[in-house]
Design a protein around this nucleic acid. Sequence first.
DNA 1: CCAGTACTTAGGTTG
DNA 2: TAAGTACTGG
Length: 771
Amino acid sequence: MEFLSTFEITKTIMSYLEELNESQRIAVENIFGPTMVIAGAGSGKTRVLTYRIAHMLKNDIDPFNILSLTFTNKAAKEMSERISKICGGQEAKNITMGTFHAVFAKILRYNSDRIGFPSNFTIYDTQDSKSLLKDIIKELNIDDKTYKPSNVLGRISSAKNNLISAQAYADNPEIQLEDKQSMRPEIGRIYRIYANRCQKAGAMDFDDLLYFTNVLLRDFPDVLHYYQQKFRYILVDEYQDTNYAQYLIVKKIAASYENICVVGDDAQSIYSFRGANIKNILNFRQDYPDYKLFKLEQNYRSTKNIVEAANSVIKKNKDQINKVVWTDNGIGQKITVLRTLTDNEEGRAITNKINTLKESIEQTYNNFAILYRTNKQSRSFEESLRKLNIPYKIYGGISFYQRKEIKDILAYFRLTTNPRDEEALKRVINYPKRAIGKTSVENIIISANKYSVSMWDVINDFDTYPADVNGPTKARIYEFVTMINSFGAELNKLDAFTLAERITKSSGILKELNDEKTKGPEEVERVQNMEELLAGIKEFVNSGEEDEIRTLADFMIDVALLTDVDQEKPDERNHVSLMTIHASKGLEFPHVFVVGLEENLFPSQMALNSRSELEEERRLFYVAVTRAMTTCTLSYAGSRFTWGQAVMCEPSRFIDEIDQQFLHFETPSRGQGRSLMGSGFQAKSGGLNKPFERQGQKLTAVKDLNQTSHNNPSNSDKIMVGTNVVHERFGKGKVTNLEHSGADQKAVIFFPHHGSKTMLLSFAKLTIVDE
DNA sequence: CCAGTACTTAGGTTG
DNA sequence: TAAGTACTGG
């Protein structure tokens, strides 16, 4: 591969160019000047980006001068591999390619001395950030009910994404007013302490990576100049999901050459909650008046039905760039809308469908994806898939690196590379148990704050930084410090695997986990996870260049920014994929099931307050549907368990918003054999093609008694005279009378605080309660 | 300091 | 429901 002649390389690229359609090809060939590519769903966007880079290399552009920012590390890896195939291996390796966070974390490490961080700074994940905030709030002795860590972190995060420092935050009257109005006037103070503590600990959170990159480029013109010269060609994928901090980084670096190409789709902007600003894409023309615009509108992924159904929904949004996505593909089947009574039945019905489809047509489970709005929805699918022995993989949720046992081990690694890391220290100073209690740790923190040093400084030198810790405990702390130092001494002598193995042994973690192994399957899994982590490190060491020793510090650089999708090994891919719609961005599957299409779930209840939020939910729905290549199934349940209580649900407005000619309605056949449940899949035409009447939803199966053991769906409760219920607004009540039956059944319900009310059962949001 | 138990309260998407 | 917290007794 690497020894292709110039002629062959040219030929390869030329033949690739011929594979592109007209608009794709023009976009690929246009490698100079500001360029914006608006790429509809499934229009070959990744392909354009990849070939564009290949085309640059073919035109003798130095790979060292190319910066390509992707949305996931996996996307970067795949692009890099494809470019290697076209242009030969070495070239592609020299391109700077990765996510914003990964790329700029590296640049920050390289220039860390400028901004007062060590080059081996730790990256705090969300958990670390929240835990630190929790401590700070506690230390300040302010109400932890009004100041919730996640809430405060959200505020700080959006401040950082808008490049507002702690000082600027406190000085900004508008922000201060906002915080006062929300009864949280202390956030500015917390922000300042938080930033300070991170700095002391030599740690950056996710937002800091972007924030400090901006600081670096703003305050050090020589650094800015260096990267402007280095990155003469910039490509940004998923531009619609960049936030202000990212936007500004790109803008600054691109300023001297303006060879910047952004690719995106405003209709797929789904990350405004983390500061993504759709205006970045809309304002591109103002930033670069002589820009060129290319639109990719032909969809190669999906059937006509799917493309047009998706179009019919997204056109309800007001904020968007004009474009028409179309396809030459076949019409395909209508989109199936599946109604089930409960969330558990939804799981069973979808699972049965997958089973049937797999047997009859498809050979592999890879072709199926179940997409949901929230991670917790995965549960019912997990259960039913497991029951039928269908292999599946849940993406996102608690990732491998967030598991407790893994975080514990990583905390030791983190301390080894950066002993000032406060969160890591707090995590393992008494794990495994070594009789260093909470009080001692608190007093160490008090001392650290008092002398404005890190916790590590205090426990290293109690003489200089006295802390209220008793003698025996001090001795145990000394032992701990000595141990960490001994790990640190080996950091550059041993490879990552050897040192990691040593740490798990010496720290006592290995023993701790092995001792607990007898307790149950969960504990066994923990040991397996630890082994997997070590195996991963071994692989990391082995994949290094010859006579290069890859150290634990090298390993730790990437770990914080890895996600599940990045981790995937190609050979373990015969499974149904379960993930949130957010996580599915950029992916495609022959058969897609979008589940939980209920009001207050999708669209999320929290998005109902403003048009812009609702439009984002709609874009999310658009993304979900356009993942599908061949078939798309939408499902919703009549009731769903939330916090251990069954809650009635209404079908999502998005189902109504689809042009009904593309839909086909269905309920799983009930009381029959499971294998028949998927029978409606072959687009039974005729009378079924009309929506269910909403009134048709009876208040049955409010309580799902067949949670795990049996699966007879008729085993459910009904409202009767005397039933206790809870109403959304009126609270607890008792049914005193029932009128009519079926669709328009009414109930007279007595509420102790509101008197008797008559309500239509099909509309009232009632929950049956015990007692 | 620790382990076991009772109680409370979750609002959602992610690098 | 489930996870995290506060409390209690050893």
